[in-house]
Design a binder for these strands. Structure first.
Lengths: 199, 199
DNA sequence: CCTTCTAAGTTTAGTGCTAAAGTCTTCGAG
DNA sequence: CTCGAAGACTTTAGCACTAAACTTAGAAGG
């Protein structure tokens, strides 16, 4: 076999987030929960449903985002950088270290990502004139345009994703997710994996 | 600086899923939504809340899973393989190709992952006697034990995560997530990124 | 000033991944 | 029966990332 036909569009270029697209033979969510229950009696199916659906949903969404931004000629990794710079607000500047922290990368990885993106004209990289140890990464107009295009695609996609949910349901879902998020953000797993409150 | 103290445990060994741990200076969810709205008027804050909370939640959870299974001496990537083999049911066997499809990896990556895991005694790799082109990857007793230990930690963690939600709320959350999941699983984004129904 | 320390980035080595080429077995047609 | 094609991995090349070493600018102390 010359090339892996069948792996075609399933395999995306490297991205910063999970892009695993499960194959078609993956068991359905219900089958999966039933199988785990057979092997592990203590499993709470309600908890497992929430957690597994969250995981699958996110993987599918990341694949979809990757495909969409790829159509704009950027990778998901690059899109993350654009988003972070826009979030910082005008004049859309951050240092490599700060960018690395926010994206959860090492400074080394950031150096290379900025190299690429500067080469593509999405950002500029300059030394800070006031403190020549510091480097300033700034969004170019082209980068800002790319971000806007990607944002438009993403928000259309997200609106479609939630299409089947009523306004009330969207509100409830958002509120429940925010409560879970607070639980993970304001707590750290202890040695046993249990979440211990920090405040 | 000799080593990057401060990047310590935040950076985990490579895993199959997103393990990016956002730094402490990342804006809060509300700040993020407000910032995006300033830059992009068409944004629906309710949709953005759901989607962003989903994304953040998943990233945090993956970091937590990674830390937990690391305590058992396995990586998140290895745990994914163990889960997939257990899901296949006794006698816990699958070929590399099938494993790769279900995990969303290329066969090449699977070859190397199986090498490592066979070296660690978590699985065995043998040629199929009936069809010598095929290879059979089978979970060892040690691999099964590791899976069980990881599963126990994971389900404790998941129970803790949902601790603040009542039974009813868990049910509602699960149901809403399953509906979103169905929407992404039964539809494919078209060229414009819109989801088109397949059935 | 002139060390010494520390912070911010960059460089180097090694890992795990994808894409594509290569190997080996089996199957099917002539 | 033999040859060609297809299937199921494995190997090779190249990329993005982490960990750790290195570089250089500014800060602190004598």
């Amino acid at each position: 076999m010359k090339d892996f036909r069948g792996w075609g569009r399933a395999i995306l270029p490297a991205m910063s987030e999970s892009t695993e697209e499960p194959g078609p033979s993956e068991p359905s969510l219900d089958e999966q929960i039933a199988a785990y229950q057979r092997e592990f009696r203590d499993l709470d199916p309600q908890v497992e449903q929430v957690v597994s659906a969250l995981g699958r949903l996110n993987r599918r969404m990341n694949v979809a985002y990757g495909r969409q931004v790829a159509a704009l000629g950027i990778s998901n990794a690059e899109w993350e950088v654009l988003k972070t710079l826009v979030l910082a607000g005008a004049p859309y500047r951050l240092g490599p270290g700060e960018l690395a922290k926010r994206l959860g990368l090492t400074p080394a990885a950031m150096t290379h990502r900025i190299d690429r993106m500067a080469g593509e004209g999405l950002v500029t990289r300059d030394r800070d004139e006031n403190n020549r140890v510091r480097v300033i990464v700034e969004l170019t107009d082209e980068g800002r345009t790319k971000w806007l295009e990607a944002m438009r695609m993403a928000s259309d996609f997200e609106e479609d994703l939630l299409q089947d949910l009523s306004g009330d349901e969207r509100g409830v879902l958002g509120e429940l997710l925010v409560r879970l998020l607070r639980r993970v953000e304001h707590a750290q797993p202890d040695a046993g994996g249990r979440l211990t409150d920090l405040d």
